[in-house]
Simulated scan of single mutants.
Amino acid sequence: MARKLQTIGFDADDTLWHNERFFTLTQERFAELLADHAERAHLEARLLAAETRNIGHYGFGVKGFVLSMVETAVEVTEGRVPGSVIGEILAAGQEMLAHPVELLPHAQEAVETLASAHHLVLITKGDLLHQERKLAASGLGELFDAVEIVSDKRPETYARIFGASPGGTEGAMMVGNSLKSDVNPAIRAGGWGVFVPQDLAWSFEHDERLDHPRFREIPHLGALAELVESIG
Rank of each mutant, 00 (worst) to 15 (best):
M1V: 08
A2E: 15
A2M: 09
R3F: 10
R3A: 12
G9Q: 01
F10H: 05
F10R: 02
D11A: 05
D11R: 00
A12C: 03
A12W: 07
D13H: 03
D13K: 06
T15S: 09
W17R: 06
W17Q: 06
W17S: 09
H18A: 13
H18K: 14
R21T: 01
R21F: 02
R21S: 01
F23G: 06
F23S: 14
Q27D: 08
E28D: 09
F30Q: 01
F30V: 01
E32S: 04
E32W: 05
H37A: 15
A38N: 07
A38Q: 01
L43Q: 05
E44P: 11
A45Q: 14
R46A: 13
A49I: 12
T52A: 11
Y58R: 01
G64P: 13
G64T: 02
L67H: 05
S68E: 13
M69G: 00
V70N: 11
V70D: 04
T72R: 08
V74N: 15
V76A: 07
G79V: 04
R80I: 08
V81H: 13
V81R: 09
P82T: 08
G83A: 05
G83R: 08
S84H: 15
S84R: 10
G87R: 10
L90E: 14
L90G: 09
A92G: 01
G93F: 13
G93W: 00
Q94N: 07
Q94L: 09
M96E: 08
P100L: 11
P100S: 05
V101G: 04
L103Y: 07
L104M: 10
A107Y: 05
A107N: 09
A110T: 02
V111M: 09
V111G: 11
L114F: 11
A117S: 14
H118F: 15
I123T: 01
K125S: 06
D127V: 11
L128I: 13
Q131P: 15
E132C: 05
L135F: 04
L135D: 00
A136S: 12
A137W: 10
S138F: 07
L140V: 14
E142F: 07
E142T: 11
A146C: 00
A146I: 01
V147A: 00
E148L: 03
I149L: 14
I149E: 01
V150Y: 11
D152L: 08
K153S: 07
R154Y: 10
P155A: 03
A159N: 14
A159H: 08
R160V: 01
I161Y: 03
P166F: 12
G167F: 07
G168K: 07
E170S: 10
E170P: 02
G171K: 12
G171M: 11
G171C: 10
M173P: 07
M174E: 06
M174I: 04
V175G: 07
G176K: 02
N177F: 05
D182K: 06
V183C: 05
V183Q: 05
A186S: 04
I187F: 09
R188Y: 14
A189W: 03
A189C: 12
G190K: 00
G191Y: 03
V196R: 00
D199H: 08
L200G: 01
A201K: 15
A201D: 13
S203M: 15
E205N: 15
H206R: 10
H206S: 12
E208M: 01
L210Y: 11
P213T: 00
R214S: 05
F215V: 02
R216A: 02
E217D: 11
I218K: 11
L221Q: 03
A223W: 06
E226A: 06
S230Q: 15
G232W: 06
G232V: 04
